[in-house]
Amino acid sequence: MALDESVIQERAKEIGKLRDALNTILYGQETLVELTITGLLARGHMLLEGLPGLGKTELVKGLSKALQLVTKRVQFTPDLLPGDITGNPVLQETEKGREFVFQPGPLFANLVLADEINRASPKTQSALLEAMQERRVTVLGETHTLPHPFFVLATQNPIELEGTYPLPEAQLDRFLFKLEVPRNNAATLERIVSQRELGVEPELEPVMDGEALESLMETVRQIYLPDVVANYIARLVDATHSGQSKTAEGIKFGASPRAALSLASAAKARALMAGRINASFEDVKSVAVPVIQHRIILEYNARIDGKTNRQIVESLIAEVPTQDFNTPSTLKQTAAAATN
């Protein structure tokens, strides 16, 4: 179905309102807010990584309020069991007599904040797999569908790794984005100090409801992805594999096809946020780091040399050209580009 550019502009304005609302409760984290909204529109789960107190939980709460979504928070601990998050059958007295009745767990919400997800045991972490991918849970052979929309926003602390269970690659691959929450600079801190009180949650007016969010997500699916952009995504993901690019020498295992799908979806969401009818190379580049960085495993030598996943992905972006054609030796490319 062809999209009307005026409709796209209208949707972009709605998203802009959400962005503005979140920026009023989370100071100095414009990029994080931008990417979080992108992730939501792309129907993806997100893994937030940052030191305590940087506003991760605040962001989720703000989303909950602005979108009027049912939000639940689970603090992951080593003794947390799968049933604690999926729900358990409970023996109850009913009209038919005693029988097991499924008691939904905290996963039955629109927005689930999985706080410090790496502190839960692998068994509990795995219980999230089906929920995140299939958007349903199975307990005692009975499958229960999760509500729509359904997002998992997990957090993990990059320090204090003693006694934690690093997320396995299969689990990480389920997250659309891995977002790093940066610390605030002095000016932002001053603004927070002057405008916030400890223990008092900021007020936020609802911007849209879950239905409107679903509509926006549907619009994202209709954004046009040009063939050349799809080709660029394919080449970028392929370049993460050993032997496919110079940068890949530092990569032990490359990104999966799910990474390519995630890139395409996120690029479309970025296009909608910018009020455009089509995704572009720039959209892909802007979401490549959060999409790919947690999906690659670096070589030992690369880690010893101090390289990070982010640096590797940035290097990939610089290495892989947007256009898949070479220039003859009789021509040379100039660096500066004119703008219209």
Binding site: Y224, A274, S280, Q323, A337
Partner: peptide, 12 residues
């Protein structure tokens, strides 16, 4: 598109 930063508007 690429050189003029037109965000693939011409392709579309």
């Amino acid at each position: 598109d690429d050189r003029l930063s037109l965000r693939n508007a011409l392709t579309t």
